[in-house]
Amino acid sequence: MNRIARAWDSDIAWSFRHSPVAVVAAVVSLGMILAAILAPWIAPHDPFNPASLNLMDGFTPPGQPNAFTGNSYLLGTDDQGRDILSTILYGTRISLFVGLSAVLFAMVLGISLGLLAGWKGGWVDSLLMRIADVQLTFPAILIALLIFGVARGFIPPGSREQMAIWVLIISIGLSEWVNYARVVRGAAMVEKNKEYVQAARVIGVHPVRIVARHILPNVMGPVLVIATIGLALAIIAEATLSFLGVGVPATQPSLGTMIRIGQKFLFSGEWWILLFPALTLLALALSVNLLGDWLRDALNPRLR
């Protein structure tokens, strides 16, 4: 109880309560995350069960009964007769899963390499940071495309569909690790010269333990900020890759896949197939990004 009261009184919580943008962004993103997690229970239809699909339901406009079957869908259906609302719920689930996993992977990789470079210095640092510099000269999406293409070459054709999502996560993660590594390296170099680290070295604490117990907790602040903004980036990267047709397969549509399918019908009048997934992606990426912006400002002592 005391702990909750103290958290409520902390600077961060105060800054959160006094930022309407942050509150709205948090509510929207939390709502979407909840909806995505609960998709199997709250979705009105199962878009992945071919038996429940009726091709006659295809192209039902939102909120109106279908001309042939009389079935009505809140957000309409796509060309296959899949309920758009249900597909969005499941699609958000996939988008969030890929985004979160990619960020987690990029974070673990970036933090480890950043700590290694910052702590060791010398040629280890030079080597890792030159790799990072080279990678930064390419757009992240290009790197992800490249890794995705190469990885697919190694996977037997039979298991490509199931592996696609993991390949996607690794591709996006590998294209984003640099951001974490650079920030962590810089912070680690500052922290390792502080006297509390020297105090631990005087008593001969093992370097791995010093890095994990002393330095890591003190570099996590900026990492949290990048991770939040990185989540929005990863969701967009996943949507872009899926839109380009190299991401998750059409049998497991993510928001990007839905947008790709929808844009084919935009000019023939079936606008809802594109619009609703696009709005969902926009709301998700924007709210997560705004949350990240707020966190960055709240944790920046110079802006307080």
Binding site: K194, E195, Y196, Q198, A199, V202, I203, G204, H214, P217, N218
Partner: peptide, 17 residues
């Protein structure tokens, strides 16, 4: 190492926050 210790100059940097 157990038998010697060090006290540092800056008490704001010598304790892990």
């Amino acid at each position: 190492r157990r038998r010697f210790q060090m006290i540092f100059q800056d008490p704001f940097a010598s304790l892990n926050p």
